[in-house]
Computed example of a mutant assay.
Amino acid sequence: MDLDFIDRLHTTRRQMKEVLAEIGFYEKDRYFVHPDTNFFLEFPSGPLAVGNEPVAVVEELRLDTGILRLLSPTDCIKDRLAAFYHWNDRQCLQQAVWVALERHVDWDEI
C-alpha cells in the first residue's frame, strides 16, 4: 500500500515534510501518511534500481498536472516478481500478471 518516489532533486527531509503537510500528509516512522487514504508515501534513497540493477530507461506519463516518471512495464514486472520471490507476496505476483496482460514487455530482459 505504499507509493515509492525517488527524489532526484536532493530535497531535504524537512522540505519534503513541509510541502507534504500542505496537502495533509504527516510523517510517521519513515513514511508519510494521510488520514483520507490507506496509501502511504515512501522516499527511498536513489539511484532508481530494481534489485541491484540500475534502471536505464524511465518511462514518462504526461498528465494535465505534469509529467509522472515511472518504471517501464518490463522493470515494473521485474520489481513485482522480485518482491513476490523475496517476501512470498502473492499480491505482487498478481500485479506482475496484470502489467504483463496490459503492456508490451521485453521477456528476454526479464
Results as ranks from 00 to 15, higher is better:
79 D>C: 03
26 Y>I: 03
100 A>H: 11
77 I>M: 11
1 M>W: 06
37 T>S: 15
109 E>N: 07
28 K>Q: 14
49 A>L: 03
40 F>E: 13
20 L>H: 07
79 D>T: 05
59 E>L: 00
3 L>N: 06
81 L>G: 06
25 F>D: 00
17 K>L: 05
5 F>W: 14
18 E>R: 13
27 E>F: 00
58 V>E: 14
4 D>N: 13
77 I>R: 04
109 E>H: 12
53 E>S: 09
20 L>A: 02
35 P>G: 10
60 E>Q: 14
98 W>H: 11
41 L>Q: 08
30 R>L: 04
2 D>W: 07
90 R>L: 10
24 G>W: 09
15 Q>G: 04
45 S>T: 11
25 F>P: 03
84 F>V: 01
24 G>M: 05
53 E>H: 10
82 A>M: 13
6 I>N: 01
102 E>W: 05
54 P>E: 06
16 M>S: 09
76 C>I: 03
35 P>A: 07
42 E>A: 14
50 V>E: 09
56 A>I: 09
67 I>L: 07
40 F>L: 12
22 E>I: 00
79 D>F: 06
89 D>H: 12
34 H>S: 07
7 D>C: 03
6 I>Q: 02
26 Y>M: 02
68 L>P: 03
42 E>R: 13
17 K>M: 06
44 P>L: 01
16 M>P: 02
34 H>E: 08
19 V>L: 12
83 A>C: 12
101 L>H: 13
99 V>Y: 10
91 Q>A: 12
108 D>G: 03
86 H>K: 14
20 L>P: 05
107 W>D: 12
11 T>K: 07
48 L>W: 13
86 H>E: 15
97 V>P: 00
33 V>R: 15
6 I>R: 02
98 W>D: 15
107 W>G: 06
81 L>H: 08
26 Y>W: 13
39 F>V: 00
105 V>H: 10
1 M>V: 02
22 E>T: 08
75 D>Q: 05
87 W>L: 04
9 L>R: 15
63 L>P: 04
107 W>F: 14
2 D>M: 01
21 A>S: 14
83 A>I: 13
70 L>D: 02
77 I>Q: 04
45 S>P: 01
24 G>R: 02
75 D>A: 01
103 R>G: 01
71 L>Y: 13
92 C>K: 15
46 G>E: 03
67 I>T: 15
36 D>F: 11
34 H>P: 08
57 V>D: 14
40 F>R: 15
97 V>T: 07
91 Q>C: 04
34 H>F: 10
6 I>Y: 14
61 L>F: 12
94 Q>G: 09
52 N>S: 12
21 A>Y: 09
29 D>C: 00
21 A>F: 08
71 L>P: 03
88 N>V: 00
1 M>T: 06
57 V>T: 08
78 K>D: 08
95 Q>C: 05
32 F>Y: 15
54 P>S: 02
71 L>D: 07
78 K>H: 06
63 L>H: 10
33 V>C: 14
